[in-house]
Design a protein around this nucleic acid. Sequence first.
DNA 1: CTGAAAGCGCTAACAA
DNA 2: TTGTTAGCGCTTTCAG
Lengths: 327, 327
Amino acid sequence: MAKVTISDVAQAAGVSKATVSRYLNKHFERMSPNTRQKIAKVIEDLNYQPSFQASALKSNWTHLVGVVVADISNIYSTLLITGINEVAKAHGNQIMIGDASDDLNQQQESIELLLRQNVDGLIIQPMSQDPHDYAYLRQSGTPTVMVDRLTKPLFWPTVTSDDYASTYKLAQAVLAAGYQDILIFINKISVASTRQMRAQAFLDATQDKARVTLLETANDDPKVVADWLVQHPNAHPVVFAGNGRLLMALLLWIKDQGLTCPEDLGVCGYDDWRWAALVGPGISCVTQYPIQIGQQATELLAQIIGGKRLPATQVKVAADLNLRGSF
Amino acid sequence: MAKVTISDVAQAAGVSKATVSRYLNKHFERMSPNTRQKIAKVIEDLNYQPSFQASALKSNWTHLVGVVVADISNIYSTLLITGINEVAKAHGNQIMIGDASDDLNQQQESIELLLRQNVDGLIIQPMSQDPHDYAYLRQSGTPTVMVDRLTKPLFWPTVTSDDYASTYKLAQAVLAAGYQDILIFINKISVASTRQMRAQAFLDATQDKARVTLLETANDDPKVVADWLVQHPNAHPVVFAGNGRLLMALLLWIKDQGLTCPEDLGVCGYDDWRWAALVGPGISCVTQYPIQIGQQATELLAQIIGGKRLPATQVKVAADLNLRGSF
DNA sequence: CTGAAAGCGCTAACAA
DNA sequence: TTGTTAGCGCTTTCAG
């Protein structure tokens, strides 16, 4: 089953490759209907499929959009990719996924791989806040949009959740419920802007109305929370889990310990997905919309690819606050 | 920032393109260490990145693995892709995702798109059980492995969960708990082999020891369950949700109705993710391991791409049964 | 051990 | 309206 090429088509249709190429690129303006039909028929008959490689090589136009997520096993990624894929497809682009496995070096490798694929554009959920860590990207001149996390200063158009506002409101609700101790259960804070911002929203809202303790973990292990509880046997704290995975880890641990919420401790966090409503009395959560973020980012990227120059500004996608019975 | 090509490198190193190409393809066998170092240095200095397109065009070897999932917004996909990506990377391949949006035609489009990208191989979660629906795939001769779902007859090596066994055991546990009515809440049954098999396992285990009712939905809506309950006000059934999304939809509905489980009705199902333990008394579930399925499939694919001829047999990845308090 | 040369499948001036 | 021609950046015989 030798692959059928543009030459085969040209020959079978009795025209030149150039004409077939024009047909493929829909330059019908001044092509005899006759020729056009002939080519159409031959393509149909031979089931000819133009090669992307060849076309890309010549035209420098791959119709590929690279997507580098922080951690592909995270549900956030699925949703983000779903949104991106949808819009990319609508623009005639194919997406190519890279995974950073939560590691800056791996992220760089992924980006470079995609750059070698000559992607027309790139959507990145950046591991680092420092634009300098992406110098090679800048150099390549590839149109880029960042998602979910900010770099400081902003260097690329960036689409994120507007979660400061929601998190702030969540913190206020926690205070209103009378909690004296707020534990922020979060991944090592230095890495990503989102994490920092979430913690900050809590700190800002709380001021000195309650004690806020940052409990950092490197591996999603709620041990830090357990330790704190041991050291404060009489406290009745609320724990704020800084992302969906931490929230789940925390809840599993709570269940495992035979504790109940909100009796033994209050819980709240981020709901990457829609399961938080189901647990116990329903977990109070900030809900994000990664699908929309992906869609927005891809629209922006399409514009940049199309030649528009967009400023490096932040676009925010609203997040919701769902207050339930968990604190 | 004009792209640096192999010619630039050749010139700068004072050698021919051919030699640089040999270097790139690690044909060091008979290359003077001197030349080798020279080239290495120049590549470093110029930050040269070989173009995949060009190499692919000539060598007919893209190092691309196409992955077509049934529905990219499903968590199952994330896990599958995670496993595939990991192994593909280890083999020096890049994955390219296609989405079928639960639709056979869209799946075909996705596959054809990937075929045009000249992927070296394909991993597909098939929408259809009928190999004839994939004639164009067969024709292309592209190495292919199917995952998650079977075609009948088997035409490609296929990696699936071994969930018949686990589902059968689950059904037995349900019977042992004394349930008289078993409701199988499932997507329109005709489409996918997995769904069929899950229902079948229940039917097989039950025989005539309980009434089994198939409740089919086209849109994840538990209305069919609600209707059944209205019609059988005195029954105390157990509902088996045929996949993770249905299970979640069911549980949300139950919570919404103010019902509790297992008091008002028993629940069990498939846990695509790890949240089922958290809900209520813990939902009894069959747990699958899509990551492993992805890994296995990719290993097989690598072998086929490598020239090995594998028989069209089914490889099963064990699934677990987690009995908890939900019935 | 290295180079020359042909060509993968397609596109895009430039001619006709 | 269509064909001719010259590559895109790389790989790979075949010579040397």
